[in-house]
Design a protein around this nucleic acid. Sequence first.
DNA 1: TCACCTCTTTGGTATAGACCAGATGCGAGG
DNA 2: CCTCGCATCTGGTCTATACCAAAGAGGTGA
Lengths: 246, 246
Amino acid sequence: MTADSANEFTKRSFLTLEQAIRNDLAEGRLAVDRRLPSERELAERYRTTRITLREALSHLEMDGLIYRENRRGWFVSDRRLVYNPLWRTDFQRMTREQNRQASTELIEAVSAVAPDDICALLEQPSGTEFWRIRRRRRVDDRLVVFVEHHLSKAVFADILEQDLTGSLTNLYREKYALEYGDVSFEINPVALTGMSATELHCSDGTFGLQIVRVNRDQTGRILDCDVEYWRHDAVSIRIDTRDSIP
Amino acid sequence: MTADSANEFTKRSFLTLEQAIRNDLAEGRLAVDRRLPSERELAERYRTTRITLREALSHLEMDGLIYRENRRGWFVSDRRLVYNPLWRTDFQRMTREQNRQASTELIEAVSAVAPDDICALLEQPSGTEFWRIRRRRRVDDRLVVFVEHHLSKAVFADILEQDLTGSLTNLYREKYALEYGDVSFEINPVALTGMSATELHCSDGTFGLQIVRVNRDQTGRILDCDVEYWRHDAVSIRIDTRDSIP
DNA sequence: TCACCTCTTTGGTATAGACCAGATGCGAGG
DNA sequence: CCTCGCATCTGGTCTATACCAAAGAGGTGA
């Protein structure tokens, strides 16, 4: 930040601090390589305390302008990824169509008893075991979503032998000759906690968007259930009934 | 409990302030007709400072357990309203089907130039005037959503003479013989600011869910555009392709 | 009855420190 | 070359206190 902009900021009210940071961000004075200076440094520059500064940063975070990675620092948010949960196009293709670059990491793939609510969604008795595949995805190198898939062990007997870092959609089609049919999903604003927070490198309690989706094949048989946890500033849900819903 | 873990217990109370409040909420010790004691009283009760206490309350707020009304206090959240933006059932009926009670307040109904992005969505040149209807809705007496409707002045010439506290869906059908056709919408997690925050009685910067919807009639003509701002803990979006999309 | 004013209570913002814990980079030792 | 451990960064949490501004209660006067 230049001496000028520091001088411009003379009033001490909270809103002006937030506005000052907003302006400096917009004009690219603050961030170097999308990364903001440390909180201590910012507090000094704006002649305020870390508590007050963090309050302002939290507001900008909620507004989707910046985000933080746990104990790593603050960063400037990129544009949102447009996402239609009714489409089962694979993630790579979806991001490519938006001129973004995506990657997927496999966290685990095991057999496990699903929680009761998931069993209910999958129309199986509580305590049923499913394949549990946990992955996380990046867009332009930023961690944006943590996904937990629950798959029928009967239908996908040998899924663990497949490459699970790619598209499950394609795997279903190519290895199991399954095409998607109906879908249902639920979107909830939630706090990211536990594993979703850890894997996304954000602190416990960060705001996120949870999307729970149940996928069926053409015969109406339930195939799997995905539970996605998105960084809230990284995604925009968009649905249009004029699009065919395959 | 072993001696080791007892030792650990005395060293660091693994029951954090947040968890303590969480327990008190769950067991009904804290909620007195859904309102929490003042921050000062809570801080005293939990032997901590207001800053720390507010941090904990913010976490619970993000998690959707409690919410605040600007300078009025903290309240315990009720269950979420299930909402399908593809359905144009009127609000009253939707809430009744979930055993909730709804009400709508008209804030203003005027002719006004719509912002550029809204004009673009409505496929009209920038600077076009529309009817602008602003309303807010309550569920079980809690303010949950602020809505801004932009309607074609040509199609709805005399809409200001109608009762605008009721269902616009019904008005379209009964007074204008219009049925809904295709819909498209966009969901974004945002910070509530300005009018949306003021009208919802929440402080500037509170986290919310924005839903922008464009409605068409059966011939594909654009009817209107709704911009909704929801309190994040009050709504759950649910969509199922097996439901008919009228 | 009702508009208006005032006083109290509430959350909202701010100061100035301090220590903790995870992330990271670097250097020493294998 | 690689690994391990330590020093030093970062944000995360905390104490203690103060004043401000809006909301709400209650009283006052037309």
